[in-house]
Write a protein that binds this DNA or RNA. Structure first.
Lengths: 334, 334
DNA sequence: CTGTTAGCGCATTCAT
DNA sequence: ATGAATGCGCTAACAG
């Protein structure tokens, strides 16, 4: 591995000059610049990122904490971040933090120990105070899909209220009047927010809200099954269901089929997060798409602004959209 | 950020002593050791990984190149690698290389420029020579799900022949005699290897191989549809199909349903890679599971051996297994 | 515009 | 067993 000294020697200049042409921050005599560039090529010189980091106390790396990777949402986030940062000649260090407080803290510590220039995290199991502490310790943090009260200008989220609204609105437009809702678990604040959107859509349509038609699921397939069974056990009729995510919608679908219903005629179903499998279920699932890549982009731009002196526009709330497929149909009425 | 000097000063020792207790390689007087440890805690001292890297010319990072991340296979690989290496206090730097030669080369260059200690790559679009060049330049490379002829002792793969064999065997055991096959594209060597397994299973069962029952697909849903239509257009009867991957199997399923077939009675279908959505299709897909985590583990251990002086056992070929679900049933015939 | 110099924080000789 | 000195490869004052 050639060093900057060898390049300097070969080009017959000092190492400062080499450093200057390499970084392009100061101007250099054209002739010298050419000699340097020639030497660089001949030696196939690669600057050591390590030495550079030590000298200017920046690692050009940003730590990314996600709870898991084998889920479309987070893998897309990571993929987007990687692409954006690599284009800026920075790399990401990912840490998979799992779901519990302890392992997430460990993962954060790991990233801190790696001297990242900034962090982009989804660490719902860690207290806001802990995260704020790190953030104040000089290390900038951006939060994705997680709202940290005390750091609102660093939290990037989807507009979940609108998600619930759009799903419900879609069914209303198809003529459905009796629409049930299967929610995510109460411990996630977004669950309640989403329900709000559902209620707003109904209210706007002048339809009274029936509390028994709202079931609290667990974001898993079983929650969908349990939800459908529970909803059917009541005497309130409904011709459509909004689910907070696609997994529960999938559960509803299998359960409905087991019950002998024919889909989508007997029941229209909307999912909630446009999972990868959503177009493989039968019928292909109508769902809500969250602009994952955009969320990643915003968080990345925030970091680029804060630590790399860029000046990008950022938005903190990203708008979802409806993806109509085959699991919802016009109300078959009467 | 406190440095090792401040720790030394506070503990009343030289920085060498601090370095020694930190790395635990040399022995240190118990009293001094305690004073150092106390100082470390009081100052909340964290060694700079950057300075350490510069001093010992190791970054404790390994570069990971995958073509994409939003696919179960690669996200699982990455997740496994992250977990293994973090446990060894090393981090991975991922680069998403896409599918074309150019972008993959760029990604490799990026990783090299990051001074990784080793590379773990899936870079099918890049020539073996290029990769071998890097490997010989002193940077160890492990290949996952890719066989590099010239570097067989660094290539970690699944036994695809066995995959094709197990899928076919499963159908034979269910009594099927006429089994079609939808293959992956010819440009992937594994496609042909898999077909071999299919043929071997048939041969062992004394069933003649009908070339027209083998269709070359594209590993996408459309390939499944096209395959089924093509196979049906011939006069050769078949009661089951083996697909090289789950996506094509999903295509076969939708197509079959559109044709009015009732599944799985009219047609048994086996997938090929146990994708995440495989249990969400209807009927739930019987498929072949590849031990992804194990593959990652082997590549990781190889790297640990080569560059971090460990001594783990490694295997180069990992065995797949069959995952029976609902898309295959006993032959209904006669 | 260019060269000289001094660190960045640590590991590692080398003496003691 | 401990401390002093040196260097890893680079950036950033500084002086010219």
């Amino acid at each position: 591995m050639p060093t900057i000294y060898q390049v300097a020697e070969r080009a017959g200049v000092s190492l400062s000059t080499v450093s200057r042409v390499l970084n392009g921050k100061a101007s250099v005599n054209a002739a010298l610049r050419e000699r340097v560039e020639k030497a660089v090529k001949e030696l196939n010189y690669r600057p050591s990122t390590v030495a550079r980091s030590l000298a200017n106390s920046r690692t050009d790396s940003v730590g990314v904490l996600v709870p898991e990777l084998d889920t479309t949402f987070f893998s897309e986030i990571v993929q987007s971040l990687e692409s954006i940062f690599r284009a800026e000649n920075k790399h990401i260090i990912i840490a998979v933090g799992g779901k519990c407080t302890d392992s997430q803290k460990k993962a954060v510590d790991f990233l801190v120990s790696r001297n990242c220039d900034a962090l982009i995290v989804h660490a719902q199991a860690v207290t806001d105070d802990y995260l704020k502490g790190i953030s104040e310790s000089k290390l900038p943090i951006a939060f994705i899909d997680q709202h940290v009260e005390s750091l609102p200008n660093a939290s990037f989220n989807f507009d979940h209220e609108k998600g619930g609204y759009l799903a419900t609105r879609h069914l209303l437009e198809l003529g459905h009047q009796n629409i049930a809702y299967i929610s995510g678990p109460a411990e996630f604040s977004e669950s309640a927010i989403r329900v709000k959107g559902y209620k707003r859509a109904l209210s706007e349509a002048g339809i009274p809200i029936e509390q028994p038609l709202i079931f609290n699921g667990d974001n898993a397939e079983d929650g969908g099954k349990a939800g459908l069974l529970e909803l059917l056990s009541q005497d309130l009729p409904f011709t459509a269901i909004v689910c907070a995510n696609d997994l529960m919608a999938s559960g509803v679908i299998s359960c409905a089929r087991e019950l002998g219903m024919s889909l989508p005629q007997d029941l229209s179903i909307v999912g909630g997060d446009n999972a990868a499998f959503a177009q493989h279920v039968f019928p292909r699932l109508t769902t809500i798409d969250m602009p994952t890549a955009k969320l990643a982009e915003m968080a990345a731009k925030y970091v680029l602004n804060r630590v790399y002196a860029q000046n990008n526009d950022v938005e903190f709330a990203l708008e979802p959209s409806i993806v109509p497929r085959d699991s919802t149909v016009q109300y078959q009425g009467y």
